[in-house]
Nucleic acid binder design. Structure first.
Lengths: 194, 194, 194, 194
DNA sequence: AATGAATGAGCCTTCATTCAT
DNA sequence: TATGAATGAAGGCTCATTCAT
């Protein structure tokens, strides 16, 4: 179950990602994935025993690939606030646009599904973390004179709501990259002058 | 199928609303609704033949009750922009908080479900309409000197994204009324001075 | 679910009895019963949701039909010990021979199955009750001078072991009625003289 | 397939014995045995291709170890009838009590399973042989004046039924050694007089 | 209109068995 | 010999949907 089976798992995750991207979370069945992978029913169960289990790995895989260049610690320490903001906004943009090729829809559904089951902590944690990071960036920018943001706390929160809204819109009816860029610029312009 | 059956439909929608509020959209079965209504399997099929059909009526019923006092045409014509904005924001607030007692979760799921099936028009239409209304209000406010909003178009769009984001957050991990108020005030303060 | 469904249940039990008689307990599947009843998979689940549930009713039905003429209370009070013994032995004989047309095999298997699951009380209770009844009969016979049994307690126990052994033999390789009669007579002759 | 594979077979039988003792016959799967032996699926099939095949060897192994000191031919010829009876009864006692640590349950199940398949001969043969042996012992005892048994044929049969009954009871709800001893003594006392 | 028994399709899960290595 | 991944058949269960009453 090590090398070989790991590559098989990778393969399953790859195929399953397409399925979840196309059908969301709830309506995906083990059968769907079996068919997408073109393996046997029993074969899939060798590796995973529920769509939820698969979906978790699918998300993890995506998060990891997203995080590839995110060895941020040193970056966060040294960079200028404006660079940090740029990086943050780019990350969010990716998350917003990710919907087309991917999983935001399924992630939403999964969040709802989990809420039904009572696990809502993770979503909130992710959101709150993002707010905190953004606030920190804004404060740093204020200190360095790069930004002029009267209320970093509420501005950070407002921006994150806006970003979440774009994700939702991107998920439900789609957003062009141009629209996303435009909106992100509009947000930033509020406290970056010159 | 007129009077009597209408009241029966009303009854079904009433009960079904509870079911959708509790379970979202996708996981609701005809059986769930039959049981909630305490009618016969066949009986339900006399009125509706799928959960989707029922859900559409459920949403419509809710929208109508929301819109009861929305005979806006004349209101829009006469009122001051500040009043209109207030009304608009209040409506959105209701929509955001509606999640607790109700259907936002199911609506999201349904939106995803529809996207799969290719009907994304409605969601986009609703969003665009809201943006347009808001933009109109902002422009009117500018003209009357009530507001000072440099870019009504983008501001309206930004506000709607933010509001959609709050809906999403409210749906996934919950938002207190206080937080919603605070955020809405923050948005408005940008172009209302003193 | 009352009259009509009761008759349906009766029908299922009837057919299931044949299945259990032919295949024992463990190897019987819901599918077997569905096929024996010539109803649909879902149809069976309307009435029963496991073979164990069905088997319990099958046993109960058989026990009831066995017990039809067992309104014993008054009989036990008045009858002569010899009559009681005769009755007791006849009942046991029926139980022994029952195997051919029926369920002893399945009952054994079920007992084992239950033992695995830890419920062994019932079997022991049934056995102990029979021993007690038999002992009572023997004592009564001694008192009335009908029997001459030096050790009613151990004799009763011995007889019940013997009877259980005949059941087992009947189950595994079959016993003719003649052999059963012969053995039962042999047992009784020990304490009935003249 | 000779030495090495024989020791492997022995190992498998050893482990499988535990499995059958714990789970009976029918519910044991090849998977259970694979896991108990900690070998590969394919590895097991090199030696055995069904649980039935394994079970036969398991039984045989146990029977052999039971029979180790049963080189009876000469013993039967010379010994006194009382000694023979003692030996016979001890063997049966072992068989009765064997249930605790072992396979009687599985053997019963297997007997039922075989009956379905039509092979009931073996069980009957074993029983009949035991009856014959016992009858022979009783006759010898009568001749030597050790016993006083009016009807050796029926007495032997009766004793074997009783013993089968104890096996069944031991299997289904358990019997203490004390109870077994007491019953066996009771049986013998009938024709052994001080 | 209304009932609810009945059907059958669809998905889930577990194993016996095979086979390339 | 030995491995264990892979297959596919078999049986379990749940619903959407129909239909005789």
């Amino acid at each position: 179950m090590s090398e070989k089976s790991d590559s098989k798992k990778k393969y399953i995750i790859e195929k399953a990602t397409e399925v979840f991207a196309a059908k969301g979370f709830r309506s995906v069945t083990m059968k769907d994935i079996v068919e997408a992978c073109d393996i046997s029913r029993g074969g899939l169960y060798l590796y995973y025993s529920s769509t939820e289990e698969i979906f978790k790995d699918v998300c993890e895989a995506q998060d990891e690939s997203d995080a590839e260049n995110k060895d941020i610690s040193s970056f966060l320490a040294q960079a200028k606030a404006a660079d940090l903001l740029l990086w943050f906004v780019k990350e969010q943009k990716k998350a917003i646009l990710r919907r087309k090729d991917s999983l935001v829809t399924a992630r939403f559904e999964y969040a709802f599904y989990n809420k039904e089951k009572g696990n809502i902590k993770e979503a909130k944690y992710t959101f709150d973390t993002a707010v905190t990071v953004l606030k920190t960036i804004l404060i740093r920018g204020n200190e360095s004179g790069e930004f002029e943001c009267a209320d970093p706390e509420n501005t950070a929160l407002n921006m994150m709501y806006t970003i979440e809204g774009m994700k939702a819109c991107s998920s439900t009816f789609g957003l062009s990259e141009k629209k996303v860029d435009s909106e992100l610029l509009f947000m930033i312009d509020q406290f970056i002058e010159a």
